[in-house]
């Protein structure tokens, strides 16, 4: 039995992350568009730029973070490495490299999806079209996920795909939550007001979590309830808790079934995250600072990625304070 090439393991990992990123970016743009329909709308778009730590790069190109500039920057701008077109181009290039491993159906879908997205022009991404566009991007990404689930041979490569998918998901959920936190900052007085509740509602819907939330909390909706749900719920497919637990399981299976014993450092970091989550309480978090907590999770996930790179992808050990994560 031939082992998986280290390079293919890494490509598979990033294929998952790029698709997951594109989908979540569509979700973030969509939810922001919903928020910005209220009176404070003009404040919202810069938060997306802050969220991605893109301030410097963005303002080199644009004078102001308006709906038009931000939407363009995160959808069609090929110079922005975290735009949807960049994610889809990277995903397509990765899928092309991985053609020996993935099904023809999976490749064809990415190829056609990418080709469609490349035909879009600025006139196709106006604010009135954004919601429809985001829906189509989400659908494209979910079609990919579905074909993958139904056709990818469940050997090592599938495990690396799952690792990428859930690490990215955990990361993106923290970002989705963080954007809300950014928006609330200037107006703590609004917490709990009807306006605020409608925004949390929209946030949940953008993560496809509204109905799941209602099953757990039939009545009422508080910021703590929503944030707690997205972070701690063990059954919601996009929660930080479920993602981290899944990553840990998959890594364990890779070690047992394929005898890949070198992922120890990654497991240690994951253990730390899960321990913190298990003993955490959302009200403590809101008091001590949600943003700081989310930031800490993101840093831990980068550590996990770096550890995987050293253990399985053939990367040299990272020196202190230097991350190897691709952007």
């Amino acid at each position: 039995m031939a082992r998986l090439l280290a390079r293919f393991a890494e490509e598979t990992f990033w294929l998952a992350r790029n698709l997951e990123r594109a989908e979540n970016l569509a979700r973030i743009l969509d939810v922001n568009e919903t928020f910005s329909r209220d009176a404070r709308g003009s404040q919202n778009w810069p938060s997306i730029v802050h969220l991605h730590a893109d301030t410097e790069r963005f303002f080199k190109k644009h004078q102001a973070a308006t709906a038009n500039t931000v939407i363009h920057y995160y959808t069609l701008d090929p110079d922005n490495p975290s735009s949807i077109i960049s994610c889809l181009s990277a995903a397509r290039a990765g899928a092309r490299t991985l053609r020996p491993l993935i099904s023809t159906e999976l490749w064809t879908q990415i190829n056609v999806f990418h080709a469609w997205f490349k035909t879009l022009t600025p006139s196709d991404i106006g604010r009135s079209d954004l919601s429809r566009l985001c829906a189509r991007i989400k659908e494209g990404c979910q079609t990919h996920t579905g074909i993958l689930e139904g056709t990818l041979y469940r050997d090592e490569s599938w495990h690396f795909y799952e690792l990428g998918k859930y690490i990215e998901r955990a990361d993106q959920t923290t970002r989705l939550l963080d954007i809300k936190y950014h928006m609330l900052l200037p107006s703590v007085a609004d917490v709990g007001s009807p306006l605020d509740v409608s925004q949390w509602n929209a946030l949940l819907r953008s993560a496809a979590g509204y109905h799941a939330f209602r099953r757990v909390h039939p009545r009422g909706m508080s910021p703590g309830g929503v944030a707690g749900f997205l972070i701690f719920n063990p059954s919601f497919p996009r929660s930080v808790m479920l993602s981290v637990t899944t990553v840990e399981e998959i890594l364990g299976r890779l070690r047992q079934r394929y005898g890949l014993r070198s992922g120890y450092t990654a497991l240690e970091v994951l253990d730390g995250i899960r321990g913190t989550l298990a003993s955490g309480d959302i009200h403590d978090l809101l008091r001590s600072g949600l943003h700081e907590f989310l930031d800490w999770i993101q840093v831990q996930l980068i550590k996990v990625t770096d550890a995987l790179g050293e253990a399985y992808f053939g990367h040299p050990p990272a020196t202190e304070g230097q991350s190897q994560e691709q952007q």
């Binding site: 031939a2 082992r3 998986l4 090439l5 280290a6 390079r7 393991a9 090592e156 690396f160 394929y258 005898g259 890949l260 399985y312 992808f313 053939g314």
Partner: peptide, 9 residues
Amino acid sequence: YMKTTGGLQ
């Protein structure tokens, strides 16, 4: 040898 996730093969 080729470089795999489990070392050289």
